[in-house]
């Protein structure tokens, strides 16, 4: 070891270099987002809880009970009982989704030919009652309130973001999640 190395070791140069880095972290903006006081907005494609969209014209759900989602589901968590309405449409009499089996993969949303089942951005699903995890048709239809506008844009839309979703505005709060813009709001 040369003299320079001995002096460097004695003066703890390597340790001080490391400490200088944490010292800078000490004084710059902190990245903590204090949940639940502040929440980050998720991106449009975020796969949260499911919702069944209703057709504004008929007032009934857009689902035609084609069973595509129930068949593709890797966890077999969707159960649909179809029936014919008096006007000759096919619609689900019962649509049950067991959230405790769901793995939130998004395949159901992807294959639905009517854009009826979508995955919203709602993720705060914690509950004290296990029965809340068994979503029936009523609850799924009620979940529509969480569906953001991109999920409604019909032709050309896919329950996420390609065509209509491409021009969707950036979710608020997500702007801060890029380095150099400080902590997210």
């Amino acid at each position: 070891m040369g003299l320079v190395d001995i002096v460097k070791k004695g003066a703890f140069v390597d340790i001080l270099r490391g400490m200088s880095v944490t010292g800078t972290y000490f004084v710059v903006d902190k990245v903590t987002v204090e949940y639940p006081k502040e929440k980050l907005q998720t991106y449009p494609r975020f796969r949260g809880v499911h919702a069944l969209l209703t057709d504004p014209d008929t007032g009934d759900t857009k689902c035609v009970a084609c069973m595509l989602c129930a068949t593709i589901c890797p966890s077999q968590c969707i159960k649909i009982v179809g029936e014919q309405t008096p006007d000759g449409r096919s619609h689900p009499a019962g649509f049950d989704l067991d959230l405790s089996r769901c793995v939130f993969c998004g395949l159901c949303e992807e294959v639905c030919p009517e854009a009826a089942i979508v995955m919203t951005r709602h993720y705060e699903l914690a509950t004290l009652d296990k029965n809340d995890f068994y979503l029936d048709k009523q609850k799924l239809v009620a979940n529509q309130v969480y569906a953001h506008k991109e999920l409604y844009a019909i032709p050309g839309a896919d329950g996420g973001a390609t065509d209509a979703g491409r021009s969707a505005a950036e979710p608020d709060g997500a702007a801060g999640r890029v380095p150099g813009q400080g902590a997210a709001r």
Partner: peptide, 13 residues
């Protein structure tokens, strides 16, 4: 608090 600050996060608040 300092454990948080040195890591870029806030400590207990």
């Amino acid at each position: 608090k300092f454990a948080g600050f040195f890591a870029g996060r806030v400590g207990p608040t």
